[in-house]
Amino acid sequence: MPATIVSVINQKGGTGKTTTTINLGSALQKLGKRVLLIDLDPQANLSYSLGITEPACTLAEVFSGQQKLTDCLQERNGLWVAPGSNELVDIEISLVSQKERELFLQYMLREVEGFDYILIDCPPSLSLLTLNALVASTEVVIPLQMEVLTLQGLGQILNTVAQIRETLNPNLRVKGIVVVMFDKRRKLSSEIEDYLKENIDEYIFHQRIRLNVKLAEAPSFGQSVLDYDASSYGAKDYLGLAKEFVSIS
């Protein structure tokens, strides 16, 4: 059975996109799933957060045809990772003039076998690299911080997904919106969550990701929060999210 390929996207930085990719992936792995993480962000925060600082090869070499994707994969605590790098900026520029420029990642992922889920950490912009991810994926997960400004970008993301579905990938769908950095002490958090439920048709995961210091600490130790502190709220929240994730079709 082919892997379910999921793009984790939000064009605004600092919204928990990389955190969600790592920890949802780790939680799925704890549930017995075989998971591959694709670090498509030129900032390579996902790779760094899992202790991959000097990889032998990265996605930049794969995009340029110098390496096979399968030769670049690294294992971290049961997760497999395709590392990113700053050179992806140059790769994106070079893709602009290429034929079928939006299909490169799709072709690359065809050589990967044996995974249940492939999670793609997309750049914090609706760029050509993000377009590659959306074309290669069947599902989209949108981490959403409970701030007013994030609502402005949500409509743009949903419109982009709809356009990709109409033109390049009819199988693409929004799996759901993940409420992250939730603070029940703030009235605004509840107000925005209520607004989403009343005005957004897409699925909103019941499992919220609460503010938790362990989520911020874990990358310093090159681990997911589930490996860093399995008893923390962050670990429990992402494990709950993973269970809900696999339970919905």
Rank of each mutant, 00 (worst) to 15 (best):
E61S: 12
K33V: 12
F104H: 14
L109G: 02
T19V: 14
L134R: 07
I91S: 05
N23A: 14
C57A: 14
S85T: 03
F63L: 05
L28M: 04
N23C: 10
L129R: 07
M146F: 08
L105S: 01
L28S: 12
L128V: 10
E75S: 15
T53I: 11
L69G: 05
A44M: 06
S26V: 03
S137Y: 03
T19S: 15
A56Y: 07
T130Q: 08
L109S: 01
S85I: 03
K33M: 13
V89S: 13
A56C: 05
Y48P: 00
L69E: 01
Q29I: 03
V135R: 04
D90A: 10
L126V: 12
R76P: 03
Q43E: 06
P83W: 02
P83L: 07
A82F: 00
Y48I: 09
L134T: 03
L126A: 08
L79D: 00
P124F: 02
L109F: 01
I22M: 14
E102L: 04
T138W: 00
G65N: 07
T70C: 06
G51W: 06
T20W: 12
L103H: 10
I142L: 12
L105E: 02
P83V: 02
G16T: 12
G16M: 11
Y117R: 03
D71E: 15
T53H: 15
A44N: 06
V141K: 13
I52R: 05
R101Q: 07
T53A: 12
L88Y: 03
L46H: 06
D90W: 02
N132K: 13
K33Y: 15
S64F: 05
V135D: 09
T19K: 10
